[in-house]
């Protein structure tokens, strides 16, 4: 999963979102250890201080924690990961609905489009 960053929003908030995504996708499994800051910064091609700030933000929210001397880990608390997942689903769905709204679709039309697309994908 590559790091995708927009150019018009603060970098550290975007890094927080991307790490949340990676945790939800199981790329960084619950209880698993994160790569060191330097490595993450290099991977995302961002300033190490910015990456550090994003990680500190996620620690504050409880998704990550630091074990002194042995590094930074993903929480083992499944409820918390589920909570992040459902928040992400809501956010992405809201974005999608807003976009469709701007295109002039009504909710029943959107629902129909979604279910017919799901049907198509099922047949594939």
């Amino acid at each position: 999963m590559p790091w995708e960053l927009d150019s018009d929003r603060p970098i550290y908030t975007q890094l927080m979102e991307q790490i949340e995504l990676k945790v939800c996708a199981g790329l960084y499994p619950p209880g698993g250890r994160l790569p060191p800051v330097r490595e993450l910064a290099r991977e995302a091609a961002v300033n190490p201080n910015t990456m550090q700030r994003a990680l500190a933000g996620l620690e504050e929210s409880g998704l990550l924690y630091t074990r002194r001397t042995s590094g930074r880990f993903v929480t083992e608390n499944q409820d918390m990961i589920r909570a992040v997942k459902s928040r992400l689903v809501r956010e992405h769905t809201r974005d999608f609905l807003n976009k469709m709204g701007r295109l002039g679709f009504t909710h029943p039309e959107i629902l129909e489009a979604v279910s017919s697309l799901m049907e198509e994908n099922k047949n594939e």
């Binding site: 150019s7 018009d8 929003r9 603060p10 970098i11 550290y12 300033n47 910015t50």
Partner: peptide, 15 residues
């Protein structure tokens, strides 16, 4: 800072 600029102006440093 870069993030101050982006947060305050809603645009990249480049723009």
């Amino acid at each position: 800072t870069v993030d101050e600029i982006r947060a305050e102006s809603g645009q990249s440093v480049d723009s």
